[in-house]
């Protein structure tokens, strides 16, 4: 094992970086799209239900198939991998944003409106901070899933730790499989923990006590 590590050390670092990079790009895109979309959906609750179940259907398409679908459109490499993973990140973030914003106490919203907040101020000053713990939970869930699924990127030439795993499968070398799996797991754990720290930083002081109590 040590022998293997010393021989492939360099390769392992590069693949881990690739893996991290693909996942991160996808998740950032997901946040940029899904959070505003979730807030928008909370303004039209009638339409929101249908829209979210439609995204849910997209999610049920096997990930391998999605990756394959993107080959004719975007070719092979990192870009189609990132785009495909981005679609998978959407649902948890979107749903949590929608539920989080919907769940903000109506009386608080009414008070804000009655005080003279416009829509923008209502979102920035009340709805986002108050739903942040729920939104962050969606982002964390998405991130952990995505780091797992990013191994599939290797199928369409996206690189990442998936390369080790598939090589190991093809060549029947368990050491390679382990070398792909363990760093991916560690990556997922680190990402989850870091996001927990971020969440704690971003959660407004006033919510922390009541939140921890739950």
């Amino acid at each position: 094992m040590l022998e293997f590590l010393s021989a492939n050390w360099n390769d392992l670092l590069v693949k881990t970086w690739e893996h991290f990079y693909i996942s991160l790009a996808a998740i950032i895109l997901g946040v940029i799209v899904a959070v505003p979309l979730g807030i928008l959906l909370s303004r039209v609750p009638k339409f929101a239900g249908r829209f979210i179940s439609f995204i849910g259907i997209l999610q049920t398409i096997p990930s391998l198939a999605i990756l394959a679908f993107f080959i004719p459109i975007l070719g092979v490499g990192k870009l189609p991998a990132i785009v495909a993973l981005f679609f998978y990140s959407l649902l948890p973030i979107l749903r949590n944003t929608y539920i989080g914003v919907q769940g903000v106490n109506d009386s608080v919203i009414e008070a804000g409106k009655g005080m003279g907040m416009n829509d923008w101020q209502s979102i920035i000053k009340m709805e986002l901070p108050l739903s942040l713990p729920v939104i962050m939970a969606g982002i964390r869930l998405s991130t952990v899933y995505l780091i797992g699924w990013a191994t599939l990127a290797s199928f369409i030439g996206g690189g990442g730790l998936g390369d080790f795993i598939f090589d190991g499968l093809n060549l029947y070398q368990p050491a390679l499989i382990v070398a792909g799996t363990v760093p991916a797991t560690i990556l997922a754990v680190i990402a989850d923990r870091s996001l927990a720290v971020v969440e704690n930083k971003l959660t407004p002081e006033g919510l922390k006590d009541s939140y921890n109590a739950v």
Binding site: K125, L130, G206, L207
Partner: peptide
């Protein structure tokens, strides 16, 4: 929005912002 800022408003369920001091 301007009108509401010029009129005081107290609601039934208090409606304080839990995330603000």
């Amino acid at each position: 929005v301007q009108l509401r800022r010029s009129i005081g408003y107290v609601i039934q369920q208090i409606g304080l912002m839990p995330h603000m001091t």
